[in-house]
């Protein structure tokens, strides 16, 4: 009897181990599959291309991760991107220096995030509703400014985006910088740790004297700035701001964070490796399908399926973890702790 128990536990441990490293395994499997389908896929230049394309959605997802850690959500990031890009585009069209346009772009994002935060903290409206409302209103505001017309950007910006120090596209540096800063912030600053604490138990945080409102404000402002930066990176690659720019990006950002192991219920998740891995996973599938010359109408189907698989694995992992935690009664069993 004891022997079979032990074997059952070992099996559970193994399954758990596999599930825990599932993002990595999925990543490797997909890399292999696309490599087999199209050997060119595994060349360093291709992988750099994927990184380059992933960078703007990655930056967006980093901001979203912070928000999700507080058990919130920011649905408005797509509209923030559009509004910030519009501001930047208009300034660039008037021949202002790129640095000034970037500063204005980021300030727009920060302001937008502050508006979200204001309604969330001042009136206690849940983030889902606030950011849903500002998603709609923000897009309207942007369209009102541009009169629903596309903005063509000067070449100087495009030249900047095609810089490749040490052979690596500049957008990748920006992405890496954001990831580094966010990781330092989350892991090593008191405010970063307070984000985890508030996401875990907001009431306890209040009682412990943490400034919940200030932290929430910080998180949404950071998310706004990240969205604006993502917009800037993206428009510098595209050279144009379309009226539909940024539409639906909020869902990709949430998907990237969740695929990387960030919980929608707050308190659990990481920017590195979590969200970075999630972003790469999504972008790799997208690029891989293009490389494998898959029908463009089938591509989104495959993408959705891959995300579904990742989501199911994540649920299976959480379920197994919960079951294993419950087995703490009998002494013959040692408990696998959290990761």
């Amino acid at each position: 009897m004891r022997e079979t128990n032990r074997r059952g536990i070992l099996r559970d441990r193994f399954v758990l181990g596999v599930l825990r490293s599932s993002p990595f395994i999925l990543f490797a499997l997909l890399l292999l599959t696309f490599g087999l389908l199209s050997p060119r896929f595994l060349q360093p230049s291709t992988l750099l291309l994927i990184l380059n394309q992933a960078s703007y959605i990655g930056i967006l997802a980093v901001g979203m991760t912070l928000v999700l850690l507080t058990a919130g959500i920011d649905l408005s990031v797509g509209s923030i991107m559009y509004l910030a890009a519009t501001v930047a585009g208009l300034l660039l069209q008037r021949d202002l220096p790129i640095a000034a346009a970037l500063a204005a772009c980021l300030a727009t994002g920060a302001l937008y995030g502050a508006v979200n935060a204001f309604f969330i903290t001042r009136f206690n409206v849940i983030p889902f509703v606030v950011t849903l409302a500002t998603l709609i209103a923000g897009r309207g505001l942007g369209l009102a400014i541009t009169r629903s017309e596309g903005l063509t950007l000067p070449n100087s910006l495009f030249t900047l985006s095609s810089l490749r120090p040490f052979g690596v596209p500049i957008a990748v540096y920006v992405f890496a910088g954001v990831v580094l800063l966010a990781t330092l912030f989350l892991q090593l600053t008191p405010l970063g740790r307070h984000i985890y604490a508030i996401g875990n138990d907001p009431d306890a945080a209040e009682k412990a004297g943490l400034n919940r409102k200030r932290t929430i404000v910080a998180v949404y402002v950071v998310s706004g700035v990240c969205a604006a930066l993502a917009a800037f990176v993206s428009i510098s690659q595209l050279g144009i701001v379309n009226p539909s720019f940024g539409e639906g990006e909020e869902l990709d950002a949430v998907a990237a964070a969740v695929l990387g192991g960030t919980s929608l219920f707050g308190g659990v998740g990481s920017v590195f490796p979590g969200t970075v891995l999630g972003t790469l996973l999504i972008q790799m599938v997208q690029s891989g399908l293009v490389f494998a010359r898959v029908d463009i109408f089938i591509q989104p189907l495959v993408q959705a399926l891959v995300i579904l698989v990742a989501v199911l694995i994540d649920s299976a992992r959480n379920g197994l973890l919960a079951r294993l935690r419950r087995r703490t009664i009998r002494k013959t069993v040692s408990v696998p702790g959290g990761d």
Binding site: P190, A197, N200, A204, A205, K207, A208, G267
Partner: peptide, 26 residues
């Protein structure tokens, strides 16, 4: 009033983290 997702040490000093010199880091 404990944060289950944080370590014991972090819970003990959640509102008074020791700083690294004058830097904003823990």
């Amino acid at each position: 009033n404990l944060f289950t997702n944080l370590s014991i040490a972090e819970n003990l000093f959640i509102d008074a983290y020791p700083r690294l010199g004058g830097l904003p880091f823990i």
